[in-house]
Protein backbone atom coordinates (compact mmCIF):
# COMPACT_ATOMS: atom_id res chain seq x y z
CA UNK A 1 0.00 0.00 0.00
CA UNK A 2 2.76 2.37 1.02
CA UNK A 3 4.68 1.50 -2.15
CA UNK A 4 1.69 2.36 -4.28
CA UNK A 5 1.37 5.77 -2.69
CA UNK A 6 5.02 6.48 -3.32
CA UNK A 7 4.64 5.50 -7.00
CA UNK A 8 1.77 7.89 -7.43
CA UNK A 9 3.94 10.67 -6.13
CA UNK A 10 6.72 9.73 -8.52
CA UNK A 11 4.32 9.62 -11.45
CA UNK A 12 3.66 13.29 -10.96
CA UNK A 13 7.30 14.11 -11.50
CA UNK A 14 8.91 14.48 -14.88
CA UNK A 15 9.21 11.49 -17.16
CA UNK A 16 12.98 11.56 -16.94
CA UNK A 17 12.87 11.06 -13.20
CA UNK A 18 10.55 8.09 -13.50
CA UNK A 19 12.57 6.60 -16.35
CA UNK A 20 15.66 6.78 -14.19
CA UNK A 21 13.80 4.82 -11.52
CA UNK A 22 14.54 1.65 -13.44
CA UNK A 23 12.74 -1.12 -15.28
CA UNK A 24 10.60 -2.45 -12.41
CA UNK A 25 9.44 1.00 -11.55
CA UNK A 26 8.55 1.93 -15.11
CA UNK A 27 6.40 -1.16 -15.60
CA UNK A 28 4.60 -0.31 -12.37
CA UNK A 29 4.15 3.19 -13.69
CA UNK A 30 2.75 1.90 -16.95
CA UNK A 31 0.14 0.00 -14.97
CA UNK A 32 -0.72 3.19 -13.14
CA UNK A 33 -0.87 5.25 -16.30
CA UNK A 34 -3.07 2.90 -18.30
CA UNK A 35 -6.34 3.55 -16.46
CA UNK A 36 -5.58 7.24 -16.58
CA UNK A 37 -5.30 7.11 -20.36
CA UNK A 38 -8.60 5.23 -20.61
CA UNK A 39 -10.32 7.96 -18.62
CA UNK A 40 -9.19 10.71 -20.88
CA UNK A 41 -9.22 8.85 -24.15
CA UNK A 42 -11.55 7.61 -26.82
CA UNK A 43 -13.71 5.02 -25.10
CA UNK A 44 -15.98 5.03 -28.13
CA UNK A 45 -13.29 3.74 -30.48
CA UNK A 46 -14.17 0.15 -29.65
CA UNK A 47 -16.80 -1.59 -31.75
CA UNK A 48 -18.68 -4.71 -30.80
CA UNK A 49 -18.29 -7.93 -32.78
CA UNK A 50 -22.04 -7.68 -33.38
CA UNK A 51 -21.54 -4.32 -35.05
CA UNK A 52 -18.66 -5.61 -37.17
CA UNK A 53 -20.77 -8.54 -38.40
CA UNK A 54 -23.79 -6.33 -39.14
CA UNK A 55 -21.64 -3.76 -40.91
CA UNK A 56 -19.91 -6.38 -43.05
CA UNK A 57 -23.28 -7.85 -44.01
CA UNK A 58 -24.47 -4.42 -45.00
CA UNK A 59 -21.57 -3.10 -47.07
CA UNK A 60 -20.21 -6.36 -48.50
CA UNK A 61 -17.34 -5.52 -50.82
CA UNK A 62 -18.44 -1.94 -51.54
CA UNK A 63 -16.31 0.86 -50.14
CA UNK A 64 -18.66 3.49 -48.62
CA UNK A 65 -17.75 7.12 -49.29
CA UNK A 66 -17.83 9.84 -46.65
CA UNK A 67 -19.22 13.35 -46.96
CA UNK A 68 -22.72 12.83 -48.35
CA UNK A 69 -24.53 12.34 -45.05
CA UNK A 70 -25.18 14.92 -42.33
CA UNK A 71 -26.07 13.47 -38.94
CA UNK A 72 -27.34 15.79 -36.22
CA UNK A 73 -26.79 14.15 -32.86
CA UNK A 74 -25.97 15.73 -29.52
CA UNK A 75 -22.27 15.68 -28.64
CA UNK A 76 -23.25 14.70 -25.12
CA UNK A 77 -26.47 12.80 -24.45
CA UNK A 78 -27.54 13.11 -20.83
CA UNK A 79 -30.21 10.45 -21.23
CA UNK A 80 -29.20 7.49 -23.37
CA UNK A 81 -32.83 6.34 -23.53
CA UNK A 82 -33.76 9.29 -25.61
CA UNK A 83 -31.25 10.67 -28.08
CA UNK A 84 -32.77 12.81 -30.86
CA UNK A 85 -31.23 12.51 -34.29
CA UNK A 86 -31.70 13.94 -37.76
CA UNK A 87 -30.16 12.29 -40.80
CA UNK A 88 -29.90 14.19 -44.09
CA UNK A 89 -28.42 12.65 -47.23
CA UNK A 90 -27.27 14.88 -50.06
CA UNK A 91 -29.21 13.58 -53.08
CA UNK A 92 -31.32 15.02 -55.90
CA UNK A 93 -34.03 12.43 -55.05
CA UNK A 94 -35.07 12.13 -58.69
CA UNK A 95 -36.04 8.93 -60.51
CA UNK A 96 -32.43 8.70 -61.78
CA UNK A 97 -30.65 9.40 -58.53
CA UNK A 98 -32.14 8.86 -55.11
CA UNK A 99 -31.47 7.35 -51.71
CA UNK A 100 -32.99 3.91 -51.40
CA UNK A 101 -32.24 3.10 -47.79
CA UNK A 102 -30.71 4.70 -44.74
CA UNK A 103 -29.32 2.30 -42.16
CA UNK A 104 -28.76 3.47 -38.60
CA UNK A 105 -26.22 1.42 -36.64
CA UNK A 106 -24.84 1.61 -33.12
CA UNK A 107 -21.32 0.37 -32.48
CA UNK A 108 -21.88 -0.69 -28.88
CA UNK A 109 -25.57 -1.30 -28.20
CA UNK A 110 -26.65 -4.93 -27.54
CA UNK A 111 -28.28 -4.86 -30.99
CA UNK A 112 -26.25 -3.12 -33.68
CA UNK A 113 -29.03 -2.34 -36.17
CA UNK A 114 -31.17 0.47 -34.78
CA UNK A 115 -33.33 1.13 -37.82
CA UNK A 116 -33.54 1.02 -41.60
CA UNK A 117 -35.50 3.73 -43.40
CA UNK A 118 -36.77 3.11 -46.95
CA UNK A 119 -37.03 6.12 -49.22
CA UNK A 120 -37.96 6.86 -52.83
CA UNK A 121 -38.14 9.87 -55.16
CA UNK A 122 -41.59 10.55 -53.60
CA UNK A 123 -39.74 11.94 -50.58
CA UNK A 124 -38.03 14.73 -52.58
CA UNK A 125 -35.69 15.37 -49.64
CA UNK A 126 -33.73 12.55 -48.00
CA UNK A 127 -34.16 13.59 -44.39
CA UNK A 128 -35.46 11.51 -41.50
CA UNK A 129 -35.73 12.15 -37.79
CA UNK A 130 -36.13 9.82 -34.87
CA UNK A 131 -34.99 9.22 -31.31
CA UNK A 132 -32.59 6.45 -30.42
CA UNK A 133 -31.25 4.60 -27.41
CA UNK A 134 -27.54 4.49 -26.63
CA UNK A 135 -26.39 2.12 -23.90
CA UNK A 136 -23.09 3.98 -23.43
CA UNK A 137 -20.66 6.37 -25.11
CA UNK A 138 -20.10 5.15 -28.64
CA UNK A 139 -20.03 5.90 -32.35
CA UNK A 140 -23.26 6.04 -34.33
CA UNK A 141 -22.78 4.88 -37.91
CA UNK A 142 -25.18 5.84 -40.71
CA UNK A 143 -24.94 4.05 -44.07
CA UNK A 144 -27.00 5.25 -47.05
CA UNK A 145 -27.72 3.06 -50.06
CA UNK A 146 -28.03 5.03 -53.29
CA UNK A 147 -30.17 4.02 -56.27
CA UNK A 148 -27.02 3.26 -58.28
CA UNK A 149 -25.77 0.86 -55.63
CA UNK A 150 -23.16 3.22 -54.16
CA UNK A 151 -22.87 3.53 -50.38
CA UNK A 152 -22.29 6.60 -48.24
CA UNK A 153 -21.22 6.57 -44.61
CA UNK A 154 -21.06 8.95 -41.66
CA UNK A 155 -19.73 8.27 -38.17
CA UNK A 156 -20.68 10.40 -35.17
CA UNK A 157 -19.48 10.00 -31.62
CA UNK A 158 -21.98 10.56 -28.82
CA UNK A 159 -20.90 10.74 -25.19
CA UNK A 160 -23.58 9.24 -23.00
CA UNK A 161 -23.97 10.34 -19.37
CA UNK A 162 -26.68 7.86 -18.32
CA UNK A 163 -26.98 4.82 -20.56
CA UNK A 164 -30.25 3.74 -22.12
CA UNK A 165 -31.04 0.56 -20.23
CA UNK A 166 -30.49 -2.50 -22.29
CA UNK A 167 -31.24 -0.78 -25.57
Amino acid sequence: MAGETRMTVISRRTFIVSAAAGLAMSSALAALLTPHRADAGDASGERSALFDAEFKKLVGTIEPVEGKITVDLPEIAENGNFVPLTITVDSAMTADEYVRKIHLLSTNNPVARVATFHLSPANAVARVQSRMRLSKTQDVVVVAEMSNGALAIATTQVKVTIGGCGS
Binding site: N81, F82, V83, L104, S106, N109, P110, V111, R113, V114, A115, T116, F117, H118, L119, A122, N123, A124, V125, A126, R127, V128, Q129, S130, R131, M132, R133, L134, G164, G166, S167
Partner: peptide
Protein backbone atom coordinates in the same frame (compact mmCIF):
# COMPACT_ATOMS: atom_id res chain seq x y z
CA UNK B 1 -39.03 1.99 -41.55
CA UNK B 2 -37.82 -1.21 -39.94
CA UNK B 3 -37.14 -0.52 -36.30
CA UNK B 4 -34.96 -2.34 -33.79
CA UNK B 5 -34.85 -2.17 -30.00
CA UNK B 6 -32.45 0.78 -30.28
CA UNK B 7 -35.33 3.13 -31.10
CA UNK B 8 -36.67 4.99 -28.06
CA UNK B 9 -40.00 4.24 -26.42
CA UNK B 10 -42.97 5.99 -28.03
CA UNK B 11 -41.24 6.04 -31.40
CA UNK B 12 -41.11 9.38 -33.15
CA UNK B 13 -40.41 9.28 -36.87
CA UNK B 14 -40.45 12.11 -39.34
CA UNK B 15 -39.87 12.11 -43.08
CA UNK B 16 -40.30 14.40 -46.08
CA UNK B 17 -42.67 14.13 -49.02
Amino acid sequence: AELGPGISANPYISFQM
